[in-house]
Simulated scan of single mutants.
Amino acid sequence: MNTDMKATVRMALLENAALISLLGGERIYQLAAPKAEEFPRITFFELDNASTHFADDKAFAAGISIQVDVWSKDSTSAITEQVNITMTELGFVRTSAMDLYEQENAIYHKALRYRTHKEE
């Protein structure tokens, strides 16, 4: 099994019609958005992807951590709820959520971290 989940995560988020509606379009990007002034938007990246279970000196499962960042000029709550629904449906468990505010740009930023295990 392929343990590269980045394309799977992006596709699942894009398929969430409620999320796309809240974002005002398909504003979901890996690592960085092409337009810094585009709000609201989501960026995401892989934090960790490492073999976690072994048998007969071979890895058979990987632990995968993904961070999803919600960026908005207003509340991030409704968008965060839809991200949580999608990530849970993919088999991820949220391991942390941080409310951040970037005062110099007046941007609300919600950092969400998720973890799952996948067989290799």
Rank of each mutant, 00 (worst) to 15 (best):
M5E: 11
M5L: 14
K6E: 13
V9S: 02
V9M: 02
R10F: 06
M11E: 15
A12R: 05
A12S: 09
A12K: 01
L13K: 04
E15M: 04
E15D: 10
A17F: 10
A18Y: 12
L19M: 03
L19P: 02
S21W: 06
S21Y: 10
L22G: 01
L23S: 00
G25D: 09
E26M: 11
E26H: 13
R27C: 03
R27K: 12
R27N: 11
I28R: 02
Y29E: 04
Y29Q: 06
L31N: 14
K35S: 14
A36F: 12
A36W: 13
E37V: 10
E38K: 09
P40L: 01
R41C: 05
T43E: 03
T43A: 00
D48M: 14
N49R: 08
A50L: 13
S51P: 14
T52S: 14
F54V: 11
F54A: 10
A55V: 08
A55P: 04
A55Y: 13
A61M: 13
A61I: 05
A62C: 15
A62Y: 15
G63A: 14
I66Y: 06
Q67D: 03
Q67P: 04
V68F: 01
V70L: 03
W71I: 04
W71E: 04
W71C: 05
K73A: 05
K73N: 07
K73G: 03
S75W: 03
I79M: 01
E81C: 01
Q82Y: 05
V83I: 09
V83C: 08
I85W: 05
T86F: 00
T88V: 00
E89Q: 10
E89I: 02
E89D: 11
E89T: 05
D99A: 10
Y101N: 06
Q103K: 13
Q103V: 09
Q103I: 10
N105G: 11
N105M: 14
A106C: 12
I107D: 06
A111L: 02
Y114K: 02
T116N: 04
T116S: 08
K118T: 05
E119A: 13
E120G: 09
